[in-house]
Amino acid sequence: MASVWRRFILRPIANMFDGANAFFTKIRAWRLKKQVLGAATDKFIEILLRGMDLYFFTTPDDDFRRNLKDFDGRYYFKGADKAEKIRFSATFSNGDMQVHSGAIDDWDVMVTFKNGKALRDYIFSPKQDIFNSISENAVEVDGNLNHIFKFGFMVQDLMRRLGIE
């Protein structure tokens, strides 16, 4: 139901008003930029997922939305140690993305991270430093690694389209 609301009502409205679209995008980009280029906090994953979600449903950019075509993927991001209260999930299906705060049981990939910086370093290129994340034991990944690779591309692609590089 939420997907129908977003796809067939919210998105066309957002697309009707270029100004609204650009405004929301700018807000999200600003918040994302702070996390990506600055000190990533434990809010990193929430900001990233919600930013991606917003971009997916507001953007008229078909190329970016094409990333969702026929894609069925379920991601669970879980904080550990001091970040243990952080739980966010993202599901991709039917050409749409949904973000949930909380766990999902049927994830394709579960990422457990000690802090936002480690998670950012794990996901991102060119600053991507999986090796450091592993050497510091800061990120663990269970499940299908290919899903994380795809996710990493979508994040990179999003950053490029938002002008965050």
């Binding site: 996901i123 290129s125 690779f149 990493g152 591309f153 990179q156």
Partner: peptide, 12 residues
């Protein structure tokens, strides 16, 4: 597929 996240940055 491990190159997926790097596709846009691998040339740089």
């Amino acid at each position: 597929p491990a190159f997926w996240p790097e596709l846009e940055t691998i040339s740089k």
